[in-house]
Every structure is written in C-alpha cells, then in structure tokens.
Design a protein around this nucleic acid. Structure first.
Lengths: 223, 223
DNA sequence: AGGTTAGTGACAGCCGCTGACAATTGACAA
DNA sequence: TTGTCAATTGTCAGCGGCTGTCACTAACCT
C-alpha cells in the first residue's frame, strides 16, 4: 500500500517484472501478431513462470490495453477540467485533442510512445482486440456521459441528451481511430488532424442537404 | 449446392441439427448464463459430439449472434431500399424502425422471437458478448456507410460525411439498445419508442445551448 | 446393389486461464 | 546477524474452447 515513499526492494522487483512483461508482450504482439503469440513465449522472454504473467495481467488482452487505460482516465479528467461555459461537444472536442497532444508525457513514463501508438494498428487489425477496444470505449463513454450530465446539471436517467451526445461523439472518435490506425501515418499530428476534420464534419453530416457543403472542411455549414 | 429445389434427406438432417443446437445453446445461455454453459452441455442436450457443434458454429459466440446476422442484413437491405430523396439520417431512422417492427417475420422462421429478444439482455450483461456485438455493429456500419455514400454519389475515402453520419447514428443506436436491453421491458414497442426518442434527441444534444430545449421529447429544437 | 462422398464420432492436442500448495525471498525486529 | 512473518513465485493439475486427423457410417447416384 505504498505510493512513492519507500519503494522497497520488493516493490522495485515487482515493478521491473510488470514492466518487462509488458514490453515483451507488446513487442512480441507487434512482431508476430497477437494471436500467434503465446503467454509462454512472453514469460520465456522475461524468464518467469507462465503463472506469474497472469498474476500481473488478467490476460494477454489486459497487457495490450494497459497504457490505453491510463490515456482513458487522462481523457476523463480532461473533460472534467473543461470550463463550464463550453458546450458539451466543444468540451469533448478539446479534451480529446488535448489527450492526443499530451499522449507523450502521459505514456512515456511507462513505455516508449511509439510502442503505444503501434498498438492501435494491432488493435485495428486484430478482431478480438478491436472488439475489446470498443467495449472499453463504451465504458469510458458511460463515465463521460455522467460527467457531461453533471456539468449541465442534468440527470442521465431522465434526459437522453448526455448519453446521446457522448455516443454520437464516441462513434465519430472510433471511425477516426480506425481510419488512422489502418493508415500508414501513425503520428500524433495525423490523428490530431483527422480528429479535427471528422468533428468538423459532424454537423454537415447530420444535415438534410448534403449537396450544400462539400467535404469535411466546411466549418459553419447548416444551422 | 442446392437452395430450395430438393432439400434431400441429408440437407434436412443438417438443418435439424443446426436448429436444435441453436435452440439448445440459447436456452442454456439464457438460463445458466453464457460463460457457465459449456459446449459439452449443449451437445449433450442435442446428443451429438462436441466436434459437431464446431462444424455448425465457429464457437459459442456465433450461435448467440446467428439471428442477429439475419436482422443485420435485413437492416442493410432496408437502407438500400429507402427512397433517394430522404436525407441520410432520415433513411437510417426509417430503416431501423422498419427493422424492429418487422423483427417478428424476420426471425420467427428460425427461432421464437422472444428468444431472440432475450439475447439482447444476455449480450448486455455478458462483457465478452457485448464486445463481440460492438465489433459486429462496427462491421455493419462500415457497410452502411458505403451504401449511404453511394446514395449520395460520394466517395467514402474522400468525403468523411458518410462514415461520420453512420458512426454518430450507430453510437446512438447502441446506447439505445443498451438502455433497452438492461431494462425490464424487452418488447418491440419499447425499443421502437426508445429509438424514436433518442433519435429526436440527437440534434438538441449536439447543439450549443442545452438550456433551451428540455428533455428528448422536443421535436424541432435548434436549427 | 455398389461405388462415391458428405457428415459424424472419437481421439489427441494446443492454448488461455485458474486453483492449490510448496518453496523462496524480502521485510522487520530481537 | 539471525529468526520469524508475510509476500511472491514456481510447480502441478485441471477445465474449457477450439482444431486437426482419421476411421466409420449413412445418404446419394448410377
């Protein structure tokens, strides 16, 4: 139950193993593929027993999403920190962009950012991981919906708008991630740009008259 | 390679086994829970070998989503059949409602509709199934996005609007399903009503000024 | 009737994952 | 330092999902 006072040899060892397992797992997943990598291979690379792996991570899946969990909670915090005068969609937009831009500082303490960014490619190309990713995203969205409801002084169980807004936003974020993750350029700049252009396309996309504003670079179309 | 010409004894037997396995599986899943039901239990109930189950269904998961696949392709067809003058969102809305209202005729030929509707509760309460459901939905959405793009004479890879519109719409549909599937009333009427109210809440939810239109029953708020 | 082929059962085996227990090793006090 | 206690690990056994293989049975076709 210690945080940063006296790491202790025991705690240090644990941290080292946890980290080694994570790196070994990700590296193997990224080179051989997720399914083709067995837990035995991972533990062999770190020289611990298979059982030990499962003591640190609930399964292969959890290793893949370890850094994603960190990023997700940063995102939730970012939404909470947005000024109240911002409209919900605007707050979400800023929080996401903020999350991406700060992904370096957030993740680098655990693993090289590049490794983290590559996991998106892995996730998008591995059905089982893609499914898990969507499920996790859904959980985050439920949390965000409650935050938004609180911001606006609403009850999530009475007013559908918080969940609806977050669901629509989340849907767009996921197509954005997918396009980015299946493309070649996995840079932060690329995801930032894609996010902006997709969010700018939301209102035009929901409008009746698509023939009006062309493409996704038209900012104030409709309404 | 036959369709409906001469069923043949062989084909009949296969159909009987496929159906028996499906019913047994769903019934067991719904009574004992998905994870707590083993394939051996399912095959024991039908009196075939475990191996045979895997010859008909890729896994337990596929059995759960068997009828969902049928419903999904009906939905895609419905979108294709919508008149071209309808705005994308309107076409999607009509197609979904149409799909729900006709779910009886669609599914009843395979299993009792009630069994199908109950699978939603199972899916929403089983993380592994929920994840799989989201993944499948994402696949359908990609297909729908292409249909919408074609309707509007656009290129999905150039204009972000088709995917964005479908993603936002899909996100809302999934929160709708979730609310419905975790509630008590799993009637078709209930999902129809929830769908309508959530879709009506989309535009208000994406507006800047939430303080204006209250709740999700305000039809023409904003814009 | 008899050869062909589809479909099944039986068996072996891999892999993810879990429970149980013994062995090891760090933490802490005498 | 040394002994005790508690935390961590390795080992072993086993379940369940899933797959490959192969012999066997039963439907199909002439």
């Amino acid at each position: 139950m210690e945080t940063a006072s006296q790491p202790g040899l025991r705690e240090l060892k644990k941290q080292r193993i946890r980290d080694a397992l994570l790196r070994a797992a990700l590296e193997l997943f990224l080179t051989q593929g997720y399914e083709r990598t067995t837990v035995d291979e991972i533990t062999a690379a770190v020289d611990v027993s298979q059982r030990t792996f499962f003591r640190y991570y609930a399964g292969k899946e959890e290793a893949v999403f370890f850094t994603h969990s960190v990023a997700a909670s940063h995102f939730v915090d970012a939404v909470r920190a947005r000024p109240r005068h911002e409209a919900p969609l605007e707050a979400l937009r800023q929080a996401v962009l903020q999350g991406w831009d700060g992904i370096g500082e957030t993740i680098e303490q655990i693993i090289p950012v590049e490794l983290h960014l590559r996991t998106y490619q892995l996730i998008e190309s591995t059905p089982a991981l893609f499914a898990a990713h969507l499920r996790r995203s859904a959980e985050v969205e439920e949390e965000i919906a409650r935050v938004i409801a609180e911001r606006e002084g609403l009850d999530v169980d009475t007013d559908p708008r918080p969940r609806v807004a977050v669901a629509a936003f989340g849907g767009v974020m996921r197509v954005t991630e997918r396009l980015w993750g299946t493309g070649e350029d996995i840079s932060v700049a690329a995801i930032h740009e894609l996010t902006v252009s997709h969010l700018d396309a939301v209102r035009p996309a929901l409008a009746e008259k698509w023939r009006t504003g062309r493409g996704g670079t038209d900012p104030a179309a409709v309404e």
